[in-house]
């Protein structure tokens, strides 16, 4: 099985220094479903010592986390020209 890290390595990105998705920390702390941990197809949400960490680098811009998140995270598309550049979409 190819790891998600290796698979994301096949995708071309222009990463913005500003994240376009922001989970609301205080809400994540009290969220007991934490569906973001498994529904994100890029596995960008990680749980460390009970806290959710999100890394926008590698975001495939699908929108699944926004739709799935019971706590309503802040979600925007990256700025124009930034983000993922698919070639075989």
């Amino acid at each position: 099985m190819e790891s998600i890290e290796n698979r994301l390595g096949l995708v071309s990105f222009t990463v913005d220094s500003e994240p376009h998705i922001r989970p609301k920390e205080e809400k994540c702390d009290s969220c007991n479903l934490k569906v973001c941990l498994y529904v994100c197809p890029a596995k960008l949400y990680r749980l460390e010592e009970g806290k959710i960490y999100f890394n926008h680098e590698g975001c495939l811009e699908c929108g699944t986390c926004r739709v799935a998140c019971p706590e309503d995270l802040e979600w925007e598309y990256p700025k124009g020209g930034f983000g993922v550049h698919y070639q075989f979409g």
């Binding site: 099985m1 998600i4 569906v35 498994y38 529904v39 197809p41 699944t64």
Partner: peptide, 21 residues
């Protein structure tokens, strides 16, 4: 479907890999 992925705790990031195996 996103609700099914949520309910069944499907690890979406490895889904294509499982399928193609």
């Amino acid at each position: 479907r996103v609700d099914s992925a949520m309910k069944n705790k499907i690890e979406v990031y490895d889904l294509a890999e499982k399928f193609r195996a």
